[in-house]
Computed example of a mutant assay.
Amino acid sequence: MRTMLSSWQMWALLSAGFAALTAVFAKVGVDNINSDYATLIRTIVILGVAALIVTATGQWQAPGAVSSRTYLFLVLSGLATGASWLCYFRALKLGDAARVAPLDKLSVVLVAVISVVFLGERLSGANWAGVGLIAAGAVLVAWRG
């Protein structure tokens, strides 16, 4: 059990499962509400849950202990997350969850490319084939044919 809790693969699979639930729950949730307001409600819930987790696990840190570089990139990440959520909820309001979610997952392809170009990460030929299959699969699932 201890090994599972320290496995990035397990946490990534849990993330995928929760992301799937997010799409389904959000599609129903935006049915009779403005998508931007729905995003605000979701964000408040996430803020509360994160604060509870940090409090319950005693992980609060002194603000001065965090570097300005860390703050900069966390703020940029937060802005990107907010923009992503606003766009995602708008897409769910307008489209089918089964088609919106796969296109949203093109982020996997973009992460691979950006990580190689800007972070110096390396992917094997098999990894790139997987990235290509993810891109093709996302487009095929989203395509209304």
Rank of each mutant, 00 (worst) to 15 (best):
A62I: 12
L103K: 09
P63L: 02
V109K: 00
V111N: 01
I46K: 00
L110I: 10
T43Q: 04
D104F: 09
V108A: 03
S68Y: 11
S67C: 06
V111G: 01
S68T: 11
Y88M: 05
L72H: 05
S67G: 14
P102M: 05
P102L: 00
W60I: 04
K105Y: 10
C87N: 00
W60Q: 13
T55L: 11
G64I: 03
A80Y: 07
S68M: 08
D96V: 08
W85G: 00
A65Q: 13
Q61V: 11
C87E: 00
F73Y: 15
F89Y: 15
A65N: 08
G58A: 08
T55Q: 04
S77W: 02
V66I: 15
V100Y: 04
Y71N: 06
T57S: 15
A56D: 02
L106K: 00
R99C: 04
L72W: 15
L94H: 08
P102A: 02
I46Q: 04
D104C: 04
R99H: 12
V45P: 03
R69D: 02
V100E: 01
L47H: 01
S67T: 15
A101K: 01
L47W: 10
Q61L: 12
S67A: 14
G64V: 02
Q61D: 07
L106I: 01
V111S: 07
L76N: 13
A83F: 04
L52F: 15
L103Q: 05
L110S: 06
G95P: 05
L40Q: 14
A56P: 11
T57F: 15
P102G: 06
F89W: 09
V109Y: 08
I41L: 10
W60C: 03
A50H: 03
T55M: 00
V54D: 15
G78I: 10
S67K: 08
A112H: 09
G95E: 06
T57W: 15
T81M: 01
A62V: 13
A65E: 08
A83V: 13
V113D: 05
R99S: 12
Y71E: 12
A112P: 11
T43G: 01
A83S: 13
L47N: 09
R69S: 00
T43I: 05
G64K: 05
I114V: 14
A80R: 02
V111F: 06
A50E: 06
A50M: 12
L110Q: 10
A51I: 14
I114W: 13
V75E: 03
L40Y: 14
D104A: 13
L74C: 09
R42D: 09
L40I: 15
V113N: 08
P102I: 10
A65W: 06
L79H: 10
R69I: 10
V111P: 00
G48F: 04
Y88R: 07
S84W: 11
I41C: 02
G58L: 12
K93P: 13
I53L: 15
I44N: 00
I46H: 06
L110E: 09
D104G: 11
Q59M: 12
A97E: 10
R42N: 13
V116W: 12
A112E: 13
L52Q: 03
